[in-house]
Nucleic acid binder design. Structure first.
Lengths: 243, 243
DNA sequence: CCCCGGTTCCAACAAAAGTTAAGGACGCCG
DNA sequence: CGGCGTCCTTAACTTTTGTTGGAACCGGGG
């Protein structure tokens, strides 16, 4: 994948939540990005490491997670193409969590230095990136609610809808089906339940004819009951800056 | 409380995680702040509202929370003097959660306009506030892990230690005891458990001689076992910008 | 001073989730 | 094509947590 396409993915996404001037787009296009391929299930940055670059996902799925002393792991977010999951490392240099690939992925690395220079030159872009980290935080808040208050089947549905809405923006949902390349173990880690229980929940949703999950692909069967179960409100996801 | 003292609380906290130049401090001191008193258990900003000011806590405790369709409420953070819990509203104007007081509180309101102007004048301060929102996000990540992976007693201990460490910075811990002005109902909402279970957990920690919780005040009995249970790593809380 | 409302506390029972264990499906590699 | 490993699947049993309901406590207001 050429480096241009990678920038394009980023710009496309940024344009959705902010209006960007042409000259600013050019600035982004001029950002030096070094591209690297990663296999599935590989750490990109680890908890405790000091980051000097931010990682733009050009293709593939990633996840952020933290592991506690007991060895249990909690997935904090699923990250998709066009996103910069570790933008926070720009100012919080030492990582407080892991970033790793779920699938084989194409990642573009942008140095902190280049980003900071860009911010100085174009404060508007700095604000846009700041906004981006704030939406990230909003997603964490919703994730807390999901794990803390919803019964397990609703948790799964909620994560699915959120992922679908985000994939929809980048044109990766077709005919009510979309990718969610997690093992049941990982689904459990995302929902704060065990893999066995995750399996129970998946089966239940299938038996009730709500949603099908097979080989990392989600197919919604009964849209109405699916949305009802998920209790999803997209307000936190995309908010126009003009609001 | 005079408006000077309020600014002082903010500056003191900001100085801890960043080095600020004298002229920048002066800029902050020049910020127009309008002070208001709030009774306990009162909404400051509500989910869905459009914010035009940010709220600096001068005195008292606040909490952020979200309520889902079923009526269940999840507390997302506990907020203490010196903090600006809704700084995110600067760019995410419509609130995605509630901010309310736990105790009677003195709050200082700073208009978005004034903050944005300050940022234009002093980009370094903008970065400092950005950093602040990033630490906020780091705390959300840890909160997700707490609710998602730790057994209930550890969850309680973890929230207690986090609060204590933050209170310590502002000089509000004396002799191993500190304020945590939550009802058991609210503790449940913070930990993602019911009030009844919260009560069980509190009793258990008391019976095991680990920590005492009485009338909104926490007294640690066995520091070693307390820390061990909490599984606390302060890395996410304060990170020097020079790191 | 006493009553009232909100906490705190507790017990018994129900439901949800964790644990352990084991068989089956599937893809990959030799 | 057969074997191996990973994931999925399921069942039986245990533990944790939720639910319901009620008693004791406590502080503030009449």
């Amino acid at each position: 994948m050429p480096s241009d396409e990678i920038r394009a993915a980023l710009i496309r996404r940024l344009c959705i939540s902010s209006a960007i001037a042409d000259e600013d787009i050019k600035e982004i296009e001029a950002l030096p990005i070094s591209v690297r391929q990663y296999p599935a299930e590989t750490a990109v940055v680890r908890d405790g490491e000091r980051a000097t670059d931010c990682c733009l996902i050009a293709d593939g799925f990633c996840a952020r997670s933290k592991t506690i002393a007991s060895g249990k792991r909690q997935i904090l977010s699923l990250d998709i193409p066009g996103e910069i999951p570790d933008l926070m490392s720009l100012f919080l240099h030492v990582m407080d969590h892991d970033l790793s690939t779920l699938t084989p992925a194409t990642l573009g690395f942008i140095s902190h230095e280049a980003l900071l220079k860009l911010h100085r030159r174009r404060p508007v872009l700095a604000e846009m990136f700041w906004r981006d980290t704030l939406i990230d935080a909003a997603m964490f808040r919703e994730w807390i609610v999901n794990v803390g208050q919803r019964p397990a089947p609703a948790r799964l549905a909620h994560v699915m809808v959120e992922l679908r809405e985000r994939l929809r923006i980048i044109g990766r949902v077709d005919e009510g089906s979309f990718e969610m390349p997690l093992t049941q173990e990982q689904i459990g880690e995302a929902l704060g339940i065990t893999a066995v229980h995750a399996n129970r929940v998946i089966r239940q949703l299938r038996e009730e004819g709500i949603v099908e999950l097979h080989r990392g692909r989600v197919t919604v069967i009964d849209e109405r009951r699916f949305l009802e179960l998920a209790d999803f409100d997209d307000r936190y996801l995309y908010q126009s800056p003009t609001l």
